[in-house]
């Protein structure tokens, strides 16, 4: 199951990386961001190298730690992109939510808390390097809003997982009863 989820994440990562690369290139040509081309290409190469590494690991097995590593590297790479495209004013800030929502829905509350914690640490590091243009309270509210989305997404995922388990147990009971009924039927 986890192997399947991580494989689908590899595919989604290619798509998101291509879209973000296109968006950064467009903004760079338009003069809206000052990130150098060398940094754009280095970040893109890093995503590609990591994604190929994950794919090669997933061809053989799916270690338990992989989901935590892939999620942490995704958040770290987005933080680097945010750092080089204006810090707290970056338009790529929303990319954090892609990682948060996709992982929370797939893995549940535990992963939602993990993503929010990694985001919290890396975003504070970004703020440490590039001082925010406005008030720090705005940044605190942004972090707390992210936590709010994480807790809500995790809660919804938890409820969905509970219903899925109930449905699974119903299916098992129906299959068992059907088998018992077949055994009770007189032979013709």
């Amino acid at each position: 199951m986890e192997q399947q989820i991580e494989r689908s994440k590899v595919v989604v990562r290619w798509i998101v990386a291509a879209v973000i690369f296109g968006a950064v290139s467009y903004l760079k040509r338009a003069g809206s961001v000052t990130i150098p081309w060398s940094t754009i290409l280095t970040l893109t190469a890093a995503v590609a190298a990591l994604n190929l590494t994950y794919w090669s690991i997933l061809r053989r097995s799916s270690p338990h730690w992989l989901k935590y590593v892939t999620t942490a590297t995704d958040v770290a790479l987005i933080s680097l992109l945010v750092l080089f495209t204006g810090g707290s004013a970056s338009v790529f800030y929303v990319a954090y939510f892609i990682v948060l929502v996709s992982n929370s829905i797939r893995y549940g509350m535990g992963m939602a808390l993990y993503v929010a914690t990694v985001y919290n640490v890396t975003y504070v590091a970004v703020l440490g390097v590039v001082s925010p243009a406005g008030d720090l309270t705005t940044e605190a509210v942004k972090i707390l809003a992210f936590w709010g989305v994480a807790l809500y997404a995790g809660y919804l995922a938890m409820r969905f997982q509970r219903y899925a388990r109930i449905l699974e147990s119903y299916e098992e009971t129906i299959a068992k009863l059907r088998a018992e009924l077949t055994g009770l039927r007189p032979a013709k």
Binding site: V121, V124, G128, L136, T137, E139, A140, I143, L144
Partner: peptide
């Protein structure tokens, strides 16, 4: 209090 009055972003590390 931290969200309102913090003067350094490092204080946000205690949020989790």
């Amino acid at each position: 209090a931290i969200a309102w009055r913090a003067t350094n972003a490092l204080w946000f590390l205690v949020f989790p």
